[in-house]
């Protein structure tokens, strides 16, 4: 069963790549703009750290590791899911969603994984390079267990982000009629772009807790980044991140099914 889905995913990935190679121009322009963006992001932070010694207790190297982690995470989500989820609203509007429902396969899998956006794959690599450089500057010594924990938490962060994306996508069908999911996702992920410690002050602290514990979007990059570069990671936090990922993914599946039900009873 699982094997069938894995095989199917590889076929989808292969055909996506073939399709994209047919339009190389698009592919190259996108990679170029992504590189420009990363360059400016790094430059900005480099300049900031010439003016200040730390941002919310993260020193320069730690902060650069965080940025690498965010960049890799963003790239992963963009590559695997973002474009697919963005097309969902169009599928609903045009009625082409019908064809996804006819197939003897899980609708959520088909809707969210159909197309693999290969032009975002370099971002994951670049993110990894930045993380490695930051670790090298810190003078980190290789530790298999630490890397293992990081990978697990990175994966659960990705799962968490996927869950939120799916919820946003499903909700957008009847809550946000005219908005582009791309824009909403960019606005929403602003919460995972910075260390949670910046939420300081009388009104910011509770806001930070809210997005850490109630709608735990901040866990996505904060927890995996902390495990590598911050002094110590409390075990409860790691467990909490994994549990949150499971709960959010389960909730997203429930909401996606509800959206499908809504579509199937409202359309003609």
């Amino acid at each position: 069963m699982l094997l069938r889905y894995v095989n199917l995913w590889f076929s989808l990935a292969k055909f996506s790549l073939l399709g994209e190679l047919a339009f190389r121009g698009n592919f190259l322009i996108k990679i170029f703009v992504e590189l420009l963006w990363l360059g400016i992001l790094l430059l900005f932070n480099y300049t900031i750290f010439q003016q200040t010694t730390s941002i919310a207790d993260w020193n320069a190297q730690q902060y650069f590791f965080f940025i690498g982690c965010y960049f890799a995470m963003g790239g992963l989500i963009e590559m695997l899911f973002l474009d697919n989820c963005n097309q969902f609203a169009d599928l609903v509007r045009s009625g082409d969603l019908d064809f996804f429902l006819l197939r003897p396969i899980d609708e959520q899998f088909l809707v969210s994984c159909k197309h693999v956006d290969w032009s975002c794959a370099p971002n994951i690599l670049l993110g990894a390079v930045i993380m490695s450089l930051a670790l090298w500057q810190i003078g980190w010594t290789f530790d298999t267990i630490q890397v293992g924990i990081f990978l697990v938490l990175f994966a659960s962060g990705a799962a968490l982000a996927y869950g939120f994306l799916l919820i946003l996508m499903s909700a957008s069908v009847w809550l946000m009629r005219n908005q582009s999911l791309f824009e909403m996702w960019w606005l929403f992920t602003t919460l995972m772009r910075y260390p949670s410690e910046i939420f300081k002050g009388p009104w910011a602290q509770p806001t930070g807790w809210f997005f850490f514990f109630v709608i735990p979007i901040m866990l996505v990059t904060n927890v995996p980044a902390r495990v590598m570069v911050r002094p110590l990671l409390e075990p409860w936090l790691a467990c909490y991140a994994i549990a949150a990922a499971i709960v959010v993914v389960a909730a997203s599946r429930y909401i996606f099914r509800a959206a499908l039900q809504h579509y199937r009873s409202a359309s003609s």
Partner: peptide, 10 residues
């Protein structure tokens, strides 16, 4: 908040 943190760390 990011800028608040930057000014606090300067």
């Amino acid at each position: 908040l990011l800028w608040e943190a930057i000014y606090a760390g300067a």
